[in-house]
Nucleic acid binder design. Structure first.
Lengths: 405, 405
DNA sequence: GACATTTTGTTTCGAGTCGGAACTAACGCG
DNA sequence: CGCGTTAGTTCCGACTCGAAACAAAATGTC
């Protein structure tokens, strides 16, 4: 029951029907590959002739690829189809506070090469650094393949249409242009997105095929706390591209001061900085904690190892973070009622310690039995979810439903 | 960039293109009526022949209606088209804690008749009461018209697909069937929806044509606090139909106990009950307040008149409600970044008193300048927004975009 | 080994829709 | 009355769906 926007609609042309069916077929191949034409026809409940025509188009475009002829009980043996991934390269970049991660991968997000470097403070420097590194990584590891795009995940709000970085407080950037200049420098299309949204997109397009992926939330807990929200199979960006900032919801009027200036933000209770400052016994003020951390470079990962080796103070600090994390997730459960919530970030390594506290908080706050059972799935950072998300930025447009009406 | 659900997709058939264009045309008429075929062709950037064909179909179905031939500067005069509303009746019902409002209106939500009655406690009683009253109201005022549907707004979660009322704490109903039995009793299709969602739908389909209606939130403040959320032009229902329960987001861990059992819910700070108990100087516990109110039937409307006539305690209680309202709206601004927020409920009558406090709270919490300027629009209860929402339930399916892919 | 059977994949053609050219209708103006 | 202009319709070619027929490739049976 979507409303049609009478100021920006899209008419159906002669080819619209074909495009719709083409994308459905492509997505069926993506999720069920390897799959034969006859199987596709059965799944789509459409004649085999339609399938043949659409498949031929996709083969000609190089989106699909024919595979082996496989055994079958009786009759002519089917020739399997799958999405072409080999020789289709993607460069993914994860720009973070002090380091940038650069990965070369295939179209399905499988890692080919990985390198990191210190994030330059100036956007222009980052562009030139990225451009030279992208060229080199492609020359070194990418022979025989063509790079379909560069995906970049940044910690901040991004205008999806123009590609401008509107506000990235961790980097100190406001209204910064990167996409056009990097695309010009490399000759490759560039896609930029807010990191939590990118992570959500990775679950949507590159994730395992586990259940519903039309309504879920991906919460990232690192320096800050953000969320990528997917509703009705679509990412929520909001009217001004600032949706998903759950980190700055007030959950305690008298809580600690947050980097954003307000008091009692969720982020000020559950971010890595909050956890660390709690451990250090300081007033939970991120600005001060930052200064302190510059001197003693303690990380949440260190904290977790300490907690495991008997440091009860570390244990308590983590547990408190878990409780606040659960409190915030309860908010997400009650407001968006997602099918599942993914949590990414360093703290997920301590899920055996904090998981029960998180669950308890959600269960005591959820309004229905079903909502109370909303699965919360910790994502280990070792799989580089943000880089996978950056890959998804390039892959997603190929598979997305055509915009219609 | 919507993802296609490979387990529940919709193929394009021969007529899909036509259906899409048909709905676009219909919506253009709805928003620009009266409008001529030639004008439609220009707006749609399509040949006049297409428009004629589609219009003829819609005329035959009785969805559109031909109007007058109007003046024009040169050339043949155009015959105007508009959506057929006369003789198309809708019955809307607003089921509330102790009273139910029943309205007969035309297809555009214009009131024809209105009556109220005490809400029966038993669902079966409500169904029979509604059935007899609907029959009578149609017999008395609805001669010459046909009733296209009955829309019902209820204070609770509704499964949109089955029409079951999953949980309506105010009525004490859990998993209650109404739709099928009322439809059987009246012979008219019945649509049921959660009240805040219904209100949101009224803004979407029956509202004035002011700006963007693809991303907004309708917050209802009455006994409880709920929200109807629209994202990407679509209502957010969530995975288990319990989305939009912003009222039960914790904004103060040590806050008053809420009807839901948890502590410090937004609702426990800003609902009418919360405002009244604050005025009465009681611990902000809705259960106790309810008992108290049963004795002295004070309403928020009374409170507002007292505040206007110099009762500073009433004024302060309202102002505090305004601050908490703003705090919660700030949460909505930061998480969903809607283009605008509508607020409905009795307190809106005191907007001149509480408006500044609400704005101040939003502005101090919003993360971007644009978000800080998110318009908050108070909706006076005199216009019966919930009844209009119930009308929209019937009208919306006629105008919605076809589901595709 | 010939032949029926089964399944896969392709070709063919009728039906429905878009898209543009041509046509008719209605009106004003000189 | 002819001409220009705008509204609305008719007609036909191009493209796509959808079903039937057809070709291809493998298995089992006599």
């Amino acid at each position: 029951m979507r409303k049609i926007n009478v100021r920006n609609f899209k008419l159906a042309t002669r080819s619209t029907g074909r495009e719709i069916n083409r994308q459905i077929l492509l997505n069926l191949v993506r999720e069920h590959q390897p799959i034969s034409r006859a199987d596709l026809a059965r799944r789509m409940e459409v004649g085999r002739p339609r399938v043949t025509a659409l498949v031929n188009e996709l083969l000609a475009e190089g989106v699909l690829q024919e595979g082996d002829v496989v055994e079958s009980a009786r009759g002519r043996r089917p020739r399997m189809l799958h999405v072409r991934t080999r020789d289709r390269l993607v460069v993914a970049a994860d720009v973070r506070f002090n380091r940038t991660y650069l990965m070369l991968s295939d179209f399905a997000g499988n890692q080919i090469a990985l390198e990191t470097f210190e994030t330059p403070l100036e956007p222009a420097e980052l562009v030139s650094e990225l451009a030279t590194r992208i060229e080199r990584i492609l020359r070194t590891y990418g022979e025989g393949g063509t790079c379909e795009g560069v995906g970049i995940a940044v910690p901040g709000m991004v205008d999806h249409k123009t590609g401008r970085i509107l506000n990235a407080p961790q980097l100190g950037w406001k209204d910064v242009e990167i996409r056009a200049s990097l695309a010009a420098a490399t000759g490759i299309p560039v896609f930029i997105e807010n990191a939590p949204i990118a992570c959500a997109l990775s679950k949507m397009w590159l994730g395992q095929r586990e259940g519903d992926t039309a309504d879920f939330v991906y919460v990232t807990v690192s320096e800050g706390v953000g969320a990528g929200v997917v509703v009705n199979g679509e990412v929520v960006r909001g009217f001004g591209n600032s949706a998903g900032e759950f980190g700055h919801v007030p959950i305690h009027p008298d809580g600690p001061r947050c980097l954003c200036g307000a008091r009692g933000c969720w982020e000020a209770h559950t971010s890595n900085l909050a956890t660390l400052s709690r451990y250090l016994g300081r007033e939970l003020s991120p600005t001060e904690t930052r200064q302190l951390l510059a001197e003693t470079p303690l990380t949440v990962t260190d904290l977790i190892t300490r907690a495991r080796t008997g440091d009860t103070k570390a244990r308590d600090a983590l547990l408190e973070t878990g409780r606040f994390l659960g409190l915030g997730l309860a908010m997400i459960v009650n407001t968006l009622n997602p099918a599942r919530i993914f949590v990414g970030g360093e703290v997920t390594a301590a899920w055996d310690l904090i998981g029960p506290a998180v669950r308890a908080e959600i269960e005591s706050r959820a309004l229905t039995v079903a909502a109370a059972a909303t699965p919360v799935i910790p994502e280990q950072s070792v799989g580089y979810p943000r880089l996978r998300g950056a890959c998804a930025l390039v892959a997603a447009p190929i598979f997305a439903a055509p915009t219609v009406a």
